[in-house]
Design a protein around this nucleic acid. Structure first.
Length: 544
RNA sequence: GCCCCUAUCGUCUAGUGGCCUAGGAUGUCUGGUUCUCAGCCAGAAGACAGGGGUUCGACUCCCCUUAGGGGUACCA
C-alpha cells in the first residue's frame, strides 16, 4: 500500500505581488490538502534570476498569510539553493543520452522560428547533427550552451482530475525542451518535476496554461523514475477589462495607455514624465514600447503619480490591492473558491471552515470564468454587516496598517468601533474610512468642498446657511450631547419651523464634514462632541 | 498558422436523459424606507450558441459549425 496522504503545493515565482489567479490556485491546493487531512507545501521557484527578488518572496508570504493559507513546511524551499541536486541529475541524464548540450543562441532560435513562420511551418526544436569536432570547437571557444531533454517522438497522454481522462498532445507538438539555461539555472520544467517528486507531491492543481507543459513533465518523470502525480488543470480566470487571462500586466497596460494620452493631449514629452517620475528616460521608453515589460514595484507608483493616476484607477488584481482597499480575506477566499468550483446546489456564502469541509475536485468546473468585482463587493458588504465587532475592528486595524497615511491611524479601538458602527452597510473598509476621515482631522484643517457649499448652503439665497445659523442656537442649548438627545432636539426644531429634516441636517453635515456625504448626522455630532461641532459650524459660516 | 481546452440569464453558477413551463447569487430595472452616501424591504425582466444525429424522450450523450480562451520561450 502506498501512503494515501495527499500532499499539494503552491510554487510561485517571486516576481511581484501575489495576484488573484495565483491566490485561487494556492487556495484550491490548500483546500484539497485541508479537506483530506493532507499537507500543503510552499516552494519558491526563483530560477529566473533576472526577475526574482527577495522582496517579492516577503510579499508573497505576507499575502498568503493574510489569506490564512498556512503551509506545512517549516522552512521555505528555494529552487535557487538546490542547484547541485539539479546538476547531478542533469549530468546523469546526459550520460544516459537522454539530454544533450545545445549551442544555439536565443537570437538564432528566434530567427529559425521566424523562418518557420514564414514558411507556414510549426517550429519544433530538433537535435542538430553536430560532429564531434564541432562540439569540441564550441567547447574550446567556451560557447554558451543550454541542456535539452530528448523528447521521445510519441504521443503523451495523461488523465486529468478536472478535464477528464486521456488528455494529451501529438508527436508534432512536443520538442526537445531546455532543462538547464545557459546561466546554469534549471528551467521551470526541470525544477518542478524534481522538486515535486522529492517533496512527495501527490496532486498538482495548476492553471490550464500548463497543459502542454504536462507532457514535458511526465516525460521527465519517466526518465527520472519518478511517480506521476495526479494532475488537475484549473480553468483560466479572465479579466473583464480585457476578456483575456487576468494578468499583472493589465495594470501596466492601463498605466501605459495613460502615459500615451498624457504625451499626446498634454503634449508632454517622455523626457518630462521620466523626470517627474525620477526614472531614466531610456528605461521608461523601453517599457512603453514593449507590452511584455513591467514596471517594478518601486517604479510603478512613481510613474502613476507623474501622469496623475490613482491607485483606485487601476484594476484590483493583486491580493495586496484587495487588502489595501479593505476587503476581508475570508470574503476573498469565498469568492475565489466560487471561481471554477461549486459545492453544488444553491450554496454560495461559506466560511473558510465550510469551504474546507465541502471542497472536492469533483466540483471543479472546466470553463473559464470572468473575475467580476461587483459580486465580490456584494459579498464583502454582507460579510461586513454579519461579522462580529471584534472581527471588524481587527480588519480595520489591518486595513490601516497597510494604509499608514490614513488619519484614522490615530483612533483608539473604541473610536474605531464607533466608526464601524456608524458606517454600517459599507462595501469595503476604504469606504468607511474615507467617509470618516473628517472625524479625525483637526477643525482648522477641514476642507470645504465648493460644490457642497454651493448646493447645500448658498443655493436659494443662502437658505441653508440661514438654517445653519438658526439651528446653532438649538444645538448650543443641548447639554446632554448624545445621539438621542440631538435627534430629539433637532427634530423638534424642524417641526417647529415646518422644515424637513434634510433642510437642516444637510447644512450641519457640510459644516462639520466639509462635504455632503457623511455617516448619519446625529451619531457624527455625538462623536465630534459639542465643542468641535460648534467650532466647525462657526468656522464654516465665517468662511462663506 | 498549428495544437489543446471550453460553451446554461450581462456575470459567477446549479443541473450528470424524464423532477426544467431551467434553480440560486450578483448586476440591471421598478416601487417602498431614509438626514446625505450607502444599506435594507418588495417586485420585474433576463439563459440552455447554431445545425445535425442517438433515444419513446435531450440543457444533459455523439458529430459538425460558430464563438471564446489557452499554448506554441534559455518566463514560470
Amino acid at each position: 500500500m502506498s501512503n494515501p496522504t495527499v500532499v499539494t503545493r503552491f510554487a510561485p515565482s517571486p516576481t511581484g505581488y501575489l495576484h488573484v489567479g495565483g491566490a485561487r490556485t494556492a487556495l484550491f491546493n490548500w483546500l484539497l490538502a485541508r479537506h483530506t487531512g493532507g499537507k500543503f507545501l510552499l516552494r519558491i521557484e526563483d530560477t529566473d534570476l533576472a526577475r526574482s527578488t527577495e522582496q517579492a518572496v516577503h510579499q508573497l508570504v505576507e499575502d498568503l498569510q493574510w489569506l490564512g493559507l498556512k503551509w506545512d513546511n517549516a522552512e521555505l524551499v528555494y529552487q535557487s539553493k538546490r542547484l547541485p541536486i539539479y546538476n547531478a541529475l542533469i549530468e546523469k541524464l546526459m550520460e544516459r543520452g537522454l539530454a544533450y548540450k545545445a549551442y544555439e543562441t536565443s537570437e538564432e532560435l528566434d530567427a529559425q522560428r521566424k523562418q518557420a513562420e514564414r514558411a507556414k511551418r510549426q517550429f519544433r526544436y530538433r537535435r542538430p547533427a553536430l560532429s564531434a569536432e564541432q562540439i569540441k570547437q564550441y567547447e574550446a571557444e567556451g560557447r554558451p550552451h543550454v541542456v535539452r531533454f530528448v523528447m521521445q517522438p510519441k504521443e503523451y497522454r495523461f488523465d486529468d482530475a478536472v478535464l477528464g481522462p486521456n488528455q494529451g498532445f501529438g508527436v508534432g507538438e512536443v520538442q526537445d525542451f531546455v532543462i538547464r539555461k545557459s546561466d546554469g539555472m534549471p528551467t521551470y520544467h526541470f525544477g518542478v518535476v524534481v522538486d515535486d517528486a522529492e517533496m512527495g507531491i501527490t496532486h498538482v492543481l495548476r492553471g490550464q496554461e500548463h497543459l502542454l507543459n504536462t507532457c514535458n513533465h511526465i516525460a521527465l518523470q519517466e526518465a527520472l523514475g519518478y511517480p506521476r502525480p495526479i494532475y488537475a488543470h484549473l480553468s483560466v480566470i479572465l479579466a473583464p477589462e480585457t476578456r483575456a487571462k487576468l494578468s499583472k500586466r493589465d495594470r501596466d497596460q492601463k498605466i501605459r495607455k495613460r502615459v500615451g494620452e498624457v504625451m499626446r493631449s498634454a503634449k508632454r514629452p517622455l523626457a518630462d514624465i521620466a523626470t517627474d517620475a525620477g526614472i531614466a528616460e531610456a528605461r521608461l521608453g523601453e517599457w512603453l514600447g514593449d507590452e511584455k515589460k513591467q514596471l517594478d514595484l518601486s517604479e510603478q507608483p512613481k510613474v502613476m503619480k507623474a501622469v496623475g493616476l490613482r491607485e483606485a484607477d487601476l484594476p484590483e488584481i493583486m491580493v495586496h490591492d484587495f487588502r489595501k482597499n479593505g476587503y476581508l480575506p475570508e470574503v476573498l477566499n469565498n469568492f475565489l473558491a466560487l471561481l471554477g468550483w461549486s459545492p453544488g446546489g444553491d450554496r454560495e456564502r461559506m466560511s473558510i471552515d465550510e469551504l474546507v469541509k465541502l471542497f472536492s475536485l469533483d466540483g471543479v468546473g472546466r470553463s473559464n470564468s470572468m473575475f467580476a468585482r461587483d459580486k465580490l463587493l456584494a459579498f464583502n458588504t454582507e460579510a461586513g454587516v454579519a461579522s462580529s465587532p471584534p472581527r471588524m475592528l481587527a480588519a480595520m486595524r489591518d486595513y490601516l496598517s497597510v494604509n499608514p497615511d490614513s488619519p484614522l491611524n490615530i483612533a483608539t479601538d473604541g473610536e474605531l468601533e464607533k466608526v464601524l458602527k456608524m458606517n454600517h452597510g459599507f462595501h469595503i473598509l476604504r469606504e468607511a474610512e474615507e467617509k470618516s476621515r473628517f472625524l479625525f482631522t483637526p477643525d482648522e484643517k477641514i476642507e470645504y468642498q465648493a460644490d457642497a457649499i454651493d448646493k447645500v448652503l448658498k443655493k436659494n439665497e443662502g437658505q441653508g446657511a440661514a438654517a445653519l445659523r438658526d439651528v446653532k442656537a438649538t444645538l448650543e442649548d443641548i447639554s446632554d450631547w448624545t445621539t438621542t438627545s440631538l435627534e430629539t432636539a433637532v427634530k423638534a426644531y424642524c417641526e417647529q419651523k415646518q422644515l424637513g429634516l434634510g433642510k437642516v441636517a444637510q447644512p450641519i453635515r457640510v459644516a462639520v464634514s466639509g462635504s455632503a456625504i457623511s455617516p448619519p448626522i446625529f451619531e457624527t455630532l455625538e462623536f465630534l462632541g459639542k465643542a468641535r461641532t460648534l467650532a466647525r459650524i462657526d468656522r464654516c459660516l465665517a468662511g462663506m
